[in-house]
Each structure stands twice: as structure tokens, then as C-alpha cells.
Design a protein around this nucleic acid. Sequence first.
DNA 1: CCCTGTGAAATTATTCACAGCA
DNA 2: TGCTGTGAATAATTTCACAGGG
Lengths: 224, 224
Amino acid sequence: MPIDTPAGADPREIPDATVSRLPEYLHALHTLGEAGQTTVSSEGLAVAAGVNSAKLRKDLSHLGSYGVRGVGYDIAVLTIQISEVLGLRQHRAVALVGVGHLGQALAGYGGFANRGFGIAALFDIAEDRVGTELDGLPIRHLDELPEVIATERISIAVIATPPLAAQRVADSLVNAGVTSILNFAPCVLDVPSNVDVRKVDLAVELQILSFHEHRKSRNGKVGT
Amino acid sequence: MPIDTPAGADPREIPDATVSRLPEYLHALHTLGEAGQTTVSSEGLAVAAGVNSAKLRKDLSHLGSYGVRGVGYDIAVLTIQISEVLGLRQHRAVALVGVGHLGQALAGYGGFANRGFGIAALFDIAEDRVGTELDGLPIRHLDELPEVIATERISIAVIATPPLAAQRVADSLVNAGVTSILNFAPCVLDVPSNVDVRKVDLAVELQILSFHEHRKSRNGKVGT
DNA sequence: CCCTGTGAAATTATTCACAGCA
DNA sequence: TGCTGTGAATAATTTCACAGGG
């Protein structure tokens, strides 16, 4: 008989599509809470998060029942539940590799520190960057990566290097014990199956928009 | 009788999931072409793009048959076909609003110009930025947006402003005629249904990784 | 009554497995 | 024989619609 936890808090049972929306719900809850609300209906939260309410209720049902029929969800309670599921109730140290334009933007991005993450270490290889500081944090040489990752107990890293360096950096991170990587370099990373990689490619996003633009102008011509 | 184009090139018939992978295929084709290959099998291209070959073949089947049985795909031909479907065979001018850290990183991001996009205009409201130049392009005040968007025939824009300004910027862009927006501000944009919005939230990506980290440490404990 | 939680239905996406062409 | 293109099978996701608790 396989493991079958009926209570909703088992992270293994939450669908990927739901996980990818939980951060949005958390953000929406934060916004609503700051506006002074203490409870919110599925419809209200759905609008704030930009999804429809049936989907939101289905998503939340995977983490258990924290709503009250006829009333809605307690914002404080639901915030804690989602944070718990996402593993955000413990501080997570993040390493950032590649302190170019994008890396500097990421290091300064307020959203990280505000939402349970702290950039704990910066790495680069450029002579003129190594040894300097960014926001009070020293930029170290890539050679120091294994030691620092171990000392600071870092398990999440962001790669913002040129694509040619990315695989070598990923290998080094994996060897040092990192098990989750956010990759901004436009290339496919080869990592062991126990390592999670998420990729963000800015040009890909624009190309998807381009497709929709193209489709719109096509349809426009059809109607003429 | 509804429109029913049997030939595979109708953009309306291509599933979203496929569209989101086409840019990856294009990139992989480019890499393989630079390495000197002229043809590639579905398996070879799939590995280069980081997907499995059945999915790749199914995706390509939506754009028509451009492979040769027993041989594979001609890299040059397939590159043109995918570019055509994505609407990349015509140059697309892009406006960038918000020239902070992230905006500067985006403006300097090589991937845009290399892949058929050109940043055609920069906007901001900060007194000390407006009037200066970035990579030879003047940073204009947001007030000039409607005029410039119209003159330059820009239909795609990138929002890299703080979240509080984003909705106002989006309204202004939509009024000026922009129909596709790439939003880096962590907020939900309200736009007419004919406008496509894609959102990239850096903190959301990290939170999804956090979930996976959390799950891994949970599972580790279960085994102990 | 209002609003959640959830089975069931519908839709979309992925994977399998193989017919058929070069 | 090798590899594409694709129906059929499977799996995942979204949406519907409503029972039932507060």
C-alpha cells in the first residue's frame, strides 16, 4: 500500500500548476492585508491574484481546509499556511553567480529580501569586480564558491552569467551541494535529477509575445 | 461551416504549450547550426532544447511537415518555419518603460537585439534619468509615450517600473496602441482582452524553488 | 443565504507505439 | 533500416455546478 496522507499538507501531493500559483496568492494576501482587510472570499482573492475563483478554491483545497463557508478565508491564517507549504517560514540563503548588469539588478531587487530570501553571497570572475562590494556584500571569486556555499549552508543559487559559463557554474554549484537553481542564462543546464532548475529567458518571453502579435495582425487581415 | 485550414501553418491552431517551447527550439537550432550541423533528428533537437523527442515531434507537427523520414529536419528550413510562425521575420520594435537597475539590464541584454527585437524607445519619470542616454538611446519622459509609440509603430512594451506605477503605465501603453506587454512589476495588470500580458516575477520563481527545497528536506526526514 | 470544498465533466497536454516513407 | 508524423491512450489541469456548513 503506497503512502496516502489524507490530510492536505503533504507537499508531495500538490500539483505543479498549483505550486506555481501559490506565490501569487501569497502576494495578493499581503496586499489585501496591508489594505486593512482581515478576511477575503475566494472571489476577492482570485481577482487580486488574477485567476478565477474556482481555480483558486481547487488550489487551496490541496493544502487543506482553511476557509469558513459563508465567510471566506482569514488572511493571516492563510498567509501562514501558504508560507509553510512553500517552505518560506525559514530564512533561505541564496547565492548569486554573475554580477553583471542583470546580476546587479537581481541583487538590488527588493522582492527577494522582502519575501523570505536573502542574497548571502555574490560570485564573479571578472578581475575588476572581485574584491569590490555590492550593497555591502563582497563579490568573491568563483574559486571560493565551494567553501562559502558549505559555510553559509546555501542550497539555492541564481545563475546570471553569460551562457558559455553557465554549465561550468552549475557543475560547481551542484558539487558544492546546491539543489535548486534559477537560471537566467539562455542555455539548457545538465544537472543530476535531484537538482531542480527553473529557467527564465527574457528573449523567450518576448518571442511568445511576438507570436501573439503576429496572430493578431493575421486575424485582422482576415476580417478586412 | 467554420474556417478549417488543413495545412498546418494557421497560428490559431497552435496550442499555447507548444508556442511557449518554439523559442527554445529556435535557440537550439541556432546553436546546432553554429556548430556546423545542417540537419538534426527529433532526438538530437529535443536533447539540445531539453525536452523529449515525442513532445518535440508533436509540437512541430502543429506547424506542418518539414522533416524528412529517415533523415531528420533541415536546420535552415526549420529555423525559417519557426521564425515565420513566431512572427520574427519582421523586425519588432519594443518600448521599455522604467530604466532602473532591471530596466538597464534589460536594455543591455544582448538576447533582444540578436533575436529580432530592438529596443526602440526608453521611458522613465525620474528627473535625473530623463534626458540622458543609455546605449545611445535617449531616455524620454513618460509624457512623450503616446507620441513616440505612434511614430515608431511600437506594439510591444516591457514594464520594468515599481509596482505602484505599473498599472498607470499599462493604461498609457494600451491607450497609445500597444497590444502586448511583458510585465516585470510584481502586480496584476488590468487590461482589455485584446491585449496580451506576460508576467515575469523574479521572487515568484525563487518561491517555487523554495517549495521544492522544502519538499526535499521533508522527504529526507521521512527516510531517516 | 453566502461562500467553501469537491466530485464530475470538459479541456488541454503529454506520452506511447507504430504505420509508412526515404 | 532509421526516423518522422500521428492516432490512440494516458495524465494533468481547468471548469462546472452544486451539496452542505456557518
